[in-house]
Simulated scan of single mutants.
Amino acid sequence: MRTDDALAAVYQHYLTMEPYSQQDEHTYQLSDKVGSGNIKRVTTYSGIEILFSQVEYHQPFPTYFASETPIVELQFALSGERHVDISGQDYSLSKGQGALIFMQDFEAWFHPPAKELYTSFSLGIPISLFNYAAAQLSTMNSIRFKQVLGDQVFKPIVFQLDSRIQCMINNLIAALNNNDRSCLLMEAAALEILNRFMIQLFDLAPIPAGFSREDIRKLYLAREIMEASMVDPPSLLCLSKQVGLNDFKLKKGFKALFGSTVFEYLRQVRLNHAMKLLLNQGNNVTEAAVTVGYNNISAFSQQFHRKFGVKPSDVKKIY
């Protein structure tokens, strides 16, 4: 069995265990006897498992699951806190935390919270895809699956969610709940999230000449600030003060690291988010433009058409 087929089989088995049952191709319902809510699931062409869980249990309901299949998963805790005992290791994520986890040959007891809404989002990554991405990002063998996991059965790398990732997750959740979803766009977004965290967690960002590792950290912070404040962004001078880099180094380093100027990058973030609003959340052109920070609708439409080759008013007709 191919690794991505094996991964799909693991998820299918887990999602159809008591107290869940499959309602349709993408929905797994929690039994009314146990609680309320469901899990939405889409499997992409490359085998990425995209899942959104929103459930509330009436009483504690621990469940057992075991698998020999190697698994890489990006997990994001959005509300509530679930505790898991994985082969004797206690693991949990609080709201606003995420983790890149590696596991194989494991046994787990899942302890979801009772009488509290538990919401989570996750991306299951085929091992072949993870190793391919690792090879593209670095020549170091140390970030391949076997080398990361070593002789352990479970290894989590925990991080805090930033506003940009939260926005990308929200767009994927909206797509999961939309019957007119574009699985190709969902896969692209999932791959972007994976790429971001592999670079961030394994410290793989290239270092331009004349810059230190600390400078790179500040440049990533600058990017996060611009993404979080796309409606009302700081000036270049204010941004340089916020991150602790002079404006010359900020401009030069940002272009070298991310391939565009600070405000060119901001424009791309705005337009990409506007496209997702038009596709998945039913916003009209004016609503999408204002939401991402445009006051001039004509300028928004021109820039949107220049980037995507389609007028924003025609997005729904084409996609």
Score class of each variant (00 low, 15 high):
M1I: 02
D4E: 05
A9N: 01
Q12F: 00
Y14K: 03
T16E: 08
E18G: 02
P19K: 01
Q22P: 03
K33T: 10
G37C: 00
T44L: 02
I48W: 02
F52Q: 04
Y64R: 01
T69V: 15
I71V: 14
V72N: 01
S79W: 04
E81Y: 00
R82M: 08
I86V: 06
G88P: 00
D90V: 10
Y91L: 03
S92H: 01
L93D: 06
S94E: 07
G98H: 05
I101D: 09
F102G: 15
M103R: 09
Q104G: 09
D105E: 09
W109P: 03
H111F: 14
A114V: 01
L117I: 10
T119R: 09
S120I: 00
P126Y: 08
Y132I: 09
A135C: 08
A135N: 14
Q147D: 14
Q147Y: 11
L149T: 09
F154Y: 15
I173N: 06
A175Q: 12
S182F: 13
C183Y: 12
A189C: 11
E192A: 12
I193W: 10
L194P: 15
N195F: 14
F197N: 15
F197I: 06
P206R: 11
I207S: 09
P208K: 14
I216Y: 10
L219A: 08
Y220C: 10
A222I: 11
E227S: 13
E227N: 13
M230K: 14
M230A: 14
P233M: 15
L236R: 11
K241D: 11
V243W: 10
G244D: 15
G244M: 05
L245F: 09
D247Q: 12
K249W: 05
K251V: 13
G253K: 03
F254T: 02
F258L: 13
G259T: 09
F263R: 08
V269I: 11
R270K: 13
M275N: 02
K276C: 13
K276N: 14
N280Y: 13
Q281Y: 04
N283S: 12
A288D: 07
A289V: 04
V292T: 07
Y294V: 06
N295W: 03
I297E: 05
F300I: 02
S301F: 05
F304C: 02
H305V: 00
R306I: 00
K307G: 04
F308C: 03
F308E: 02
F308P: 00
G309M: 02
V310C: 06
V315H: 03
